[in-house]
Design a binder for these strands. Structure first.
Lengths: 127, 127
DNA sequence: TCTTGACTTAGAGTGAACTCCAAGATATAA
DNA sequence: TTATATCTTGGAGTTCACTCTAAGTCAAGA
């Protein structure tokens, strides 16, 4: 699969695919004799995984480290798992924080236009 | 309250406070005779609101528009509410998407180190 | 054989959101 | 009054995560 096809399949631009590979955010993609990338199932799987993780806001740094550990083989399994757990916990906290903001926003919306502007003023945005 | 105190109270740097005011992300802060900012309760409330919204990923553009409408008075109430509703809906979708990612991440973590690597490979990251 | 189009690399450019800086005004303490 | 600290502005600089460009290679079709 060429980089163009891989881009279409994953929805990640060819430029970004090259960039991700360059910085180690996805493992090296297999090449043909003339050095042209030939994306296989595993490559596509990596791209989709990374796309999903980036979409959830996981830091590029953590993902690069994760990919690097994967390349080193089975002995890094524990460290890899630890990275995922750490990032999972951060994501969980982030979701909880967003949910609190959603509640406040809903409260503000529900009270809009009513005469109880006092209620809105009492929302504590910093908490 | 000086800009330094406002910065300490809200956790937003003085530079960022000036920047936010400059681009209209918070309404003009009252000044004393010599032009120095004197943050009052309302200013602090605005900063905390904006900080909360930005923390939840609401776009600066939408918030600038919201603030501008607020300045125009009661007649813009409906448009303001519409902005909040639109952004609330986006936030809700974002939370749902993050929750799906969290589930996948948990699944991957739970199966780490077990012999069922097949299970992990079957996670569909693009969906 | 020539053209077309897709690929390669290294490196420059971009936009968002700050963050810092210079030069000058003002305020407080010794 | 002098020193120190904090404020002001406009504008330059920084970082991140791409995104684009230039110069060149390579493969397929007319």
């Amino acid at each position: 699969m060429t980089i163009k096809e891989a881009s279409q399949v994953t929805g990640v631009s060819a430029d970004t695919l090259r960039y991700y590979e360059r910085i180690g955010l996805i493992p090296a993609v297999p090449r043909n004799e003339s050095g042209i990338r030939n994306y296989d199932e595993a490559s596509i799987g990596w791209i989709n995984f990374i796309k999903c993780m980036r979409g959830a806001g996981l830091p590029i740094e953590a993902l690069i480290e994760y990919v690097a550990l994967c390349k080193e083989g089975d002995k890094t399994e524990a460290s890899r798992k630890a990275i995922l757990i750490e990032q999972r916990d951060i994501l969980q906290q982030r979701i909880e924080s967003l949910q609190k903001t959603l509640v406040k926003l809903n409260y503000k919306i529900d009270n809009y236009g009513h005469l109880n502007q006092e209620a809105i003023k009492n929302i504590k945005w910093n908490e």
